[in-house]
Computed example of a mutant assay.
Amino acid sequence: MKITGIITAMVTPLSENGIDEAATRKLVNKLINDGVHGLFILGTNGEFYALSEEEKLTLVKIVVDEAAGRVPIFAGSGGISTEAVIQLTNQFAELGVDAVSIITPYLIKISDGELIQHYQTIASNTNLPIILYNIPANTKISISEQVFKELIKIPRIVGIKDSSGQLENIQMYLDLNDRADFSVLVGSDSLILPALQKGADGAVAATSNVLTKTDLGIYQAYLANDLEKAARLQESINDFRRVLKLATVPSVLKYSLGLTGIPVGPPKSPVRGVTPELDTEIRNTLALYKEIEGMEKLSCKN
């Protein structure tokens, strides 16, 4: 499979009883109807680290069912234990996801050889296409040039999402990619256009939960060679990115979705929800995008 375009790193709608099915279905339809090229669930913004296995499986079932084949579904099955990743990946396969995203192990510091073996073992014991997920600021492990050279030899590994925030890192993966079926995806929303210009195939963008048409516009303008428009849209997301940093991920992102009419609930503890003091600033920032995103009046209650 060749993965391209704008793929939403979807938040996980939650209620007091776990996964909020109604909100999940509403968000899936909103994103697909707006034109995203895929849904990336159970990533960092999807709070994979805080969800139980039961919650993960429930979310996957709902998203796969609601998407109904309209766009590919990529689900995060990564973890620390190789055996546990294999088990969850195979469960996701039974539920119908199109590929899995597997983050590098975290908490422990492993060698390059152990990292390569981790992915080789998973690929040998599962049937789904695999997207590598590189986010060294969070995991303290980076998929280096030496590791990447070995992993790209594995046919089941079909792409990499790079959230290092370093264009040089993306360029390294692009330079080493000798496969037509392998996709290099940028995971840093501030670098969508620069990465595309270097040859990246697309972006896994958390901001597209809310700024769906803006992020899609960057990609579409780039394809149309309207680089002035693409650059303008890329610059425009900085205001939203600024407010996202005012609280722990994904607190502001989930709050913003609630204001736009899709109440996805608070983040999982220990992450706290947005404090009332931030409400006005978030609303004022979202108002900047009302025209392009076609937002109706922001909700009075979140």
Rank of each mutant, 00 (worst) to 15 (best):
E235P: 00
N225A: 12
F148P: 04
E228W: 00
G38F: 13
V271Y: 06
S251M: 08
L151A: 00
G96Q: 10
L167P: 07
V36G: 02
I19H: 04
H118L: 10
E296P: 00
L128S: 11
G76D: 09
I7Y: 10
G261M: 13
D215P: 00
K229W: 02
V210P: 01
L227W: 03
L233A: 07
D112M: 03
Q146V: 14
D112R: 09
L257D: 14
N33D: 15
N134Q: 07
N17A: 15
G35L: 01
T8N: 11
L193V: 09
E168H: 08
G96A: 12
L257K: 14
T139C: 07
H37E: 13
A206T: 05
V264L: 07
F182H: 00
K153I: 00
Q91H: 08
E228S: 12
I130R: 05
I292D: 00
P194D: 10
E114G: 12
N284Q: 14
L211C: 12
R25D: 06
G273W: 07
P276V: 03
T126K: 02
G96P: 09
I80A: 09
I218V: 15
R232V: 09
K56P: 12
V274P: 05
G78V: 11
T139H: 04
L151D: 04
N17I: 14
L259Q: 02
K290R: 14
E83F: 12
L151Y: 03
I218L: 03
K30C: 09
E293N: 11
V60C: 08
V36P: 01
I103K: 02
E53M: 10
L286M: 00
H37Q: 14
P194V: 10
D34S: 13
T126G: 14
A99E: 14
S163K: 09
L151G: 00
T285P: 02
K301D: 05
V100F: 06
